[in-house]
Design a protein around this nucleic acid. Structure first.
Lengths: 109, 109
DNA sequence: CTACTATATGTCATTATTGACATCGTAGCA
DNA sequence: TGCTACGATGTCAATAATGACATATAGTAG
């Protein structure tokens, strides 16, 4: 457990407990989920740093508040594309996104 | 054989000449295209380094040769998700993908 | 309490992505 | 020459992602 930057994730629809180690979750899939979670966290941090609501970001993205909420929850129905688009709309550069992507996810080293 | 690293890109469907600077291509969209192109290049390099054909990769991805060709051509109908999945299937780690994503495209400064 | 704001979650019609297929060009080889 | 493998590109039915909507919960004022 940790709390430095919090890791309380639910990852809706994918049912990940401690990242991977779940029946039917191939290592490749675990990697993909991990990246999505990293991006979704980066999105939330950026949005909050920007001081805007989910609704406000949704407007910029021509999307809806509910979808932004799902994005930040790393819902299985949101694509990496959408997360990246959201980050870019919040001013993230490819470099910023790369940094978020590669972030280590606490789990086993 | 091949000629190692090249940049002869067409970017089907998006009609990018020198990355951005094209009417109707917003800076955010240019950023997205740039990232897709970077990923598609990384995919081709990885596949060739692995010494397998597009068909062989397609099989691993449960996709088709034609789609892999489009992936490597950064076709507008291929998602970042698909490119990332392809890279992961070729053994790329989130870190590898992050490196490819942030790569500078050299173009105009 | 009510009212308002922000966020979460389920559903669904519309839209975008995908795999599969056909076809074409090229290169190597016998 | 034909034959084979590899790759590129167009099309399209099937599938997946998306935006919009309804609704729910929690916090904060008044």
């Amino acid at each position: 457990m940790e709390k430095s930057k919090q890791k309380r994730l639910k990852v809706r629809g994918w049912h990940v407990g401690s990242t991977s180690s779940f029946l039917g979750l191939r290592p490749e899939e675990a990697t993909l989920v991990e990246m999505k979670v990293n991006l979704s966290q980066a999105l939330r941090v950026r949005r909050e740093d920007a001081g805007i609501s989910q609704s406000a970001l949704a407007k910029r993205l021509r999307s809806s508040q509910s979808r932004v909420a799902k994005m930040e929850a790393a819902d299985r129905t949101v694509s990496i594309d959408l997360l990246v688009r959201g980050l870019v709309m919040l001013g993230a550069t490819p470099r910023d996104i790369a940094r978020a992507l590669g972030r280590e996810t606490g789990a086993a080293a």
